[in-house]
Design a protein around this nucleic acid. Structure first.
Lengths: 255, 255
DNA sequence: ACTTGAACCTGACGTTACGTGAGGTTGCAT
DNA sequence: ATGCAACCTCACGTAACGTCAGGTTCAAGT
């Protein structure tokens, strides 16, 4: 007596907002198979199948995978535990995404603030020179003469936006890796650490034009007051100073 | 004069914390190919390749895809725009994840609160009966006699945890779909809406045991004060009442 | 020089939840 | 009978690798 006692894929897809392909897929993986087939092999979904469909939709809206949904509906798994585990996964990826967003927002802010240089050591130093006046300015001036400052300014102008951008991203990444290695107890003589330091010096050279006086001056300034020279957050109270000494040790061990 | 002027995959993998397979993959997709090969075909990564590796690691830590990293490093794309676009994507998925977490947390709370029923219409009604005393209790008692209440209590005990769980999840999902359809201007006579209402009535029947007196009573209570009967947040001020009338119209149009 | 074991190589398939055709068949209405 | 919309079953593509499988090269020890 109902209008239609079975549904075909197209009708069901349109009614549920899914695609035909999705229903096909759910059929092949056994998540939702129509109870009937027509003589010619066309799928015929019954009312019972619709019930199952609603259940699947409900569980899918929680972000569960198809396999989990099957287990849940076929009674193979404790739903409460499944939800708790899933929630734990969601929480962790949420935290990771949040941290990522923090970094991207900062980076975006800095990038869209025109050509004004950035948060990290050398770039922050350049901002100080630019006259914006941060805490790092004084420290830096104590370690560099006007000529050295002029070198930095010239270099900053010569570098293209891509390089500028890379420094914004690669430099903090090198720091994080160094921090992780130090936290793991890796000795400064390890070749991983030595490579990191070498790369940091290369980036430094990019800006100083290989002028060792200038680069040593900047490094000295950073070593004296790392916190003022970087926007990054140190891991521990002695984080920056400890890291600076750690990297210095790696540098000294080079020969 | 250096310790080793080229690196082999294994050494590089160990030094960078990646796997050999990952380096192979980055080679085949052209993201990071070693500049040299040994006579026998072994990969030999030079210092320049290490520079590239650090850049890739830096960009990857931002969550960019390999294709984007290639474009960025090979100068094919504006890095600032790339970051902005990526940030937008991250923001949106962050919002989605946050909403999902909200739902999961609530669900988890309710599930771990023992057998105490839940937020949604019928289950909330059961809680009211249980004596916890919510706003819905009074409304419900006005629509049900003690016999009807006994029917609900018996049913609640008879239903297994899986069904209980499904009601917690499927019921709100049905609501959200109904709300979306109503918001989209779908007429109550549409078969999608009619199916939704039918399924809601089926769930209702699950709890009332098909006793139309009881189910009508619960429905009446919910219709009188939807906000008190559900923990969900309405879309608009008239959200719940409007939705209730919408669903009632669909029910009436059934013959 | 010869052997041997570790490290390396290139395929090739599996993973998630479908999208997107290709090429052929069925169902319903004229 | 015929047309055409809707249906069917392959089967490849997606992102970024993991995980064998079967064969080759390297470096050290004898």
């Amino acid at each position: 007596m109902t209008v239609s006692d079975t549904w075909k894929v197209g009708a069901l897809a349109e009614a549920s907002g899914l695609t035909v392909r999705t229903l096909h897929h759910w059929d092949t993986v056994g998540l939702l198979s129509p109870s009937l087939r027509s003589a010619g092999g066309h799928r015929e979904y019954t009312e019972d199948d619709l019930v199952r469909l609603y259940q699947v939709l409900a569980l899918r809206s929680l972000g569960l995978g198809l396999e989990s949904i099957s287990l849940c509906l076929d009674g193979g798994f404790d739903p409460a535990r499944l939800v708790r585990d899933h929630l734990a996964g969601v929480e962790s990826s949420l935290a990771a995404l949040g941290a990522l967003r923090q970094r991207l927002v900062r980076l975006d802010d800095e990038l869209s603030a025109g050509q004004a240089p950035t948060t990290t050591m050398l770039l922050d130093a350049l901002r100080a020179i630019g006259g914006t006046g941060t805490a790092s300015e004084e420290v830096l001036r104590r370690h560099l003469d006007p000529d050295g400052i002029q070198v930095l300014r010239t270099r900053a102008a010569a570098l293209g936006p891509a390089t500028h951008y890379l420094l914004e991203v690669e430099w903090p990444e090198l720091y994080r890796r160094a921090e992780r290695l130090r936290a793991a107890g890796t000795p400064p003589t390890d070749r991983k650490v030595r490579r990191l330091v070498a790369r940091m010096d290369e980036l430094s050279a990019l800006f100083t034009g290989g002028d060792t006086t200038v680069s040593a001056g900047v490094r000295g300034a950073w070593h004296e007051d790392p916190a003022a020279m970087s926007g990054e957050t140190p891991a521990a109270a002695d984080g920056w100073r400890g890291l600076a000494e750690y990297l210095e040790a790696a540098r000294d061990a080079r020969p």
